[in-house]
Design a protein around this nucleic acid. Structure first.
Lengths: 211, 211
DNA sequence: ATTTGTGAACGCATTCACAGCT
DNA sequence: AGCTGTGAATGCGTTCACAAAT
């Protein structure tokens, strides 16, 4: 399972995160086993899709029964690399950066937000509502290296995004979630997810014409 | 061009938004014409992809020359329904809701943010940094109907998202961008975009294992 | 009877390649 | 010569359908 990563479609990895969420919920509600159909219904997917996704990594189910909820939850968490927490930095301590820092969904284990960074002197030294410190962007490389930060979330204006991404990559970050409305160039070996709020809203608008 | 919407892949509509962005930039820099390759390079796409996307709606280019930047920008904006502004409400005036309300990318025309809504009494009556008012959620239906709001952005906790989506749909909203970590059920005729920050981060984590 | 795991079929989006226009 | 528009080819993810297992 070393260089299998490349052969797994991104769509599958996104669904794994969905599966983890419903498995966590199922475990909390006390369910012992669940069928591919049970998972699929909760995710609004096809049961065959769920089985095919899971079967890429092994045969975790029991025919006639289904999957053991607790066991599968642990397996999926492991596949996603969430058994050991990854350290995360957030670049840009504006509205969006602060919202990301305090976003409850990131604090279920698997991620540890180390700090935010900004260029504005009046922000530096403050902390977010949840207490994450804001550093000056000049300290980015030092802190990333010192703390072994693996993921950066970019919440800066479009004009600065390309530069920030390059600095993160050079400092050794391995994954970037980019919220700036640009498609930054990234070195080989650095994974990127672009979350483009303008695209979401404008593409939605398309389907609303003449209504 | 009435019920063509259904035949257009969502992927194409998302790229239209990208094309609009680069065309706007090109127009600002004074470019008169641009080739499909020029657009493709800026979006990190294949030139044939750009031509095929545009050709779904008509033949806008000139062989041997390319596309007229200003003309194509206007055409694409029209396709996306951005020639007339859609009114938008944001449900949830927490960190994320406030960040969305003040997000600069939404204010280039095409959208008008009417208000935010929340259940917390201490938020009601306040305004966001940019001056968008926060109303009580009880006033949601009234304001949506009175102002002809067409789009809702949902930034509430997972537990409340399903209910909020249903209320928006019943009040007549036609499109929803959902940031809550659930896949809400929506009535026929309402378009949804799910932006799932946890999925972005966790699916990224997958590709970082053993590194 | 129920449900998994998977090869085969399908559908769809992307890319190629070239005719046709300037 | 340069570039668009598009049918054909390709590639890839999803769904079907069934043998295998309990």
């Amino acid at each position: 399972m070393s260089d299998d990563q490349a052969r797994i479609p991104e769509a599958t990895t996104r669904r794994l995160s969905l599966y983890l969420r419903v498995l966590t919920d199922l475990e909390r509600t006390g369910a012992d086993t669940v069928s591919s159909r049970g998972i699929a219904d909760l995710c609004r997917l096809n049961p065959a899709q769920v089985r095919k996704d899971l079967s890429r990594f092994g045969a975790f189910g029991v025919r006639g029964i289904g999957y053991d909820v607790a066991e599968l939850r642990e397996i999926v968490a492991g596949l996603l690399g969430l058994d050991t927490a990854s350290r995360v930095v957030i670049i840009g301590a504006g509205n969006l950066g602060q919202a990301l820092a305090d976003y409850p969904g990131f604090h279920g284990g698997g991620f540890e937000i180390v700090a935010l960074f900004d260029v504005l002197d009046e922000m530096v030294g403050t902390v977010s509502r949840r207490g994450h410190p804001v550093h000056h962007i000049d300290d980015l490389e030092r802190i990333v290296r010192a703390d072994g930060v693996r993921i950066g979330m970019v919440a800066v204006p479009a004009a600065n995004a390309e530069d920030v991404v390059e600095r993160l990559a050079k400092a050794g970050v391995r994954g970037i979630v980019n919220f700036a409305p640009v498609r930054p160039e990234v070195p080989e070996g650095v994974a990127v997810r672009n979350v483009d709020l303008t695209v979401e809203l404008e593409s939605l608008s398309f389907f609303l014409r003449d209504t």
